[in-house]
Nucleic acid binder design. Structure first.
Lengths: 251, 251
DNA sequence: TTTGGGCATTGACCTAGATCAACTGCATGA
DNA sequence: TCATGCAGTTGATCTAGGTCAATGCCCAAA
């Protein structure tokens, strides 16, 4: 199991964190002159934890890729109810070619660095180099699958299943968060506060806290400090999550 | 009433129901030889109400467009809990270029006719005609937006708001369902059973039934028979839905 | 070394929606 | 004509998770 971390794919993934079309082992397909075009139009932006990158409805004239830190996509109702609809870890892409405005808030939940591309020139690159668009389509389809898995979670899972799912997903999602993995033992640092978790899961923060305590009492997880979680048996956690599929690529 | 249906956009929409890249007023961009390529590889399939078009996890070697009838995309857990994650009305597209297997069940909820394209040749067309891919990317981004709006509904809205949202969305979605519209008065035939609605909304069918009754008692809607709904004041319904945005394009 | 503020936990209680169950109204078909 | 059966409604009751409130913990600023 540990093996996966040092496969070429993972390496590629990590190496390419700054460029959206180099994501997830797509490098091999890129030719240097195409990359050059992207190099020319890219720039970096930093945000502090808590800062809002873009507000829902605002003009968003760039697409971007997370270099470091965590960002979230959040929907808000007038009365303040909030639902997180996306979680962006390093190397994840955000942006909507062909769209004027953002459809939801993009918030930095930790200090954040993004690699941005002004939208117009990026769209030009897309138009002239088909596989950039294809790659983007693939990524969007991935996100759509993830969103739909998440709909199952929001609509049908119990609070306990939701928490177990979230921990499992975060453990699976990003190599940098998975500190150890052997014999099913996994260690994760949650990158989210209890409140952020509750916004993600459609729960209150009290329920999140209670269910985490319950999973701890039942020996499914161990906790050190607030955020550092040891999963003694990953399979057992996955059972608690009630997952049908292996949840390969949630969010 | 019928007026909206004969605007150029609408006509395009309707005329193009059988071809995925002609959807939603995109025809203007298509050149005839590209369409010819698609003509060659297309074929039709019919399904009876209740039939499953594809099972989650099964091989899905085509992409398709709904010609008539209603299909739904549904996630299922081992213990039978079900969550609908997509609703396909005529002219909607389903399929995942670049994917081997279906990520969820596709079910015909009414008698259904689909216009299918074998996946491999369709992908070839995509590879050679960039704007087909671009169009598909746009559509996928629309779906993603819709899925994320839906996540807000599932995670944060009350039962009453969910029902009001669903009715509003169906009323907005498809011209063929909107029989009359003047002074905010709208008539809709729900294309779903109470059970299907409950699967969509993350509720039980009893709660759906109760909330529909409640909306009727409060004069938000009127009902004839089981499915025929009159909305005397569409704005009031939208208020009940708690929608922040104008909900332009929800699933 | 206090003080204050942000996170998290835990308890007591309450309510929206689930569950279980009875019943209606219609259509289908023997 | 009467069964059968499906879709929908409504009632009575139960409970998972929400709400409100108190408390603990840690760190950073005074």
């Amino acid at each position: 199991m540990t093996k996966t971390q040092i496969t070429p794919t993972k390496l590629t993934h990590v190496q390419c964190a700054e460029c959206p079309i180099r994501h997830r082992a797509v490098c091999a397909r890129c030719e240097s002159d195409e990359l050059d075009k992207l190099e020319e139009i890219k720039y970096y932006r930093s945000f502090q934890a808590g800062q809002t990158v873009v507000w829902s409805g605002d003009r968003m004239d760039f697409v971007a890729s997370v270099v470091s830190g965590i960002a979230t996509l959040t929907q808000t109702m007038e009365d303040g109810r909030r639902q997180m609809v996306g979680l962006l870890l390093p190397s994840d892409f955000v942006g909507r070619p062909g769209r004027e405005t953002a459809a939801y808030d993009v918030v930095a939940t930790t200090d954040l660095v993004m690699c941005c591309f002004r939208k117009k020139p990026f769209e030009d690159v897309m138009a002239t180099t088909p596989h950039v668009g294809q790659r983007l389509l693939e990524m969007t389809l991935d996100e759509l699958d993830a969103a739909r898995e998440w709909m199952l979670l929001l609509g049908r899972k119990t609070a306990r299943e939701k928490i177990a799912s979230l921990i499992a997903i975060i453990a699976r999602r990003d190599a940098s968060l998975r500190h150890e993995k052997s014999e099913g033992r996994v260690i994760v640092d949650l990158p989210l506060t209890r409140e952020a978790m509750s916004e993600y899961l459609g729960l209150t923060l009290e329920t999140v806290s209670r269910q985490i305590s319950a999973l701890r009492k039942d020996g499914i997880i161990e906790i050190e400090g607030k955020r550092h979680i040891i999963i003694p048996d990953f399979e057992r956690l996955v059972e608690e999550a009630g997952d049908d599929s292996d949840g390969g690529f949630l969010v």
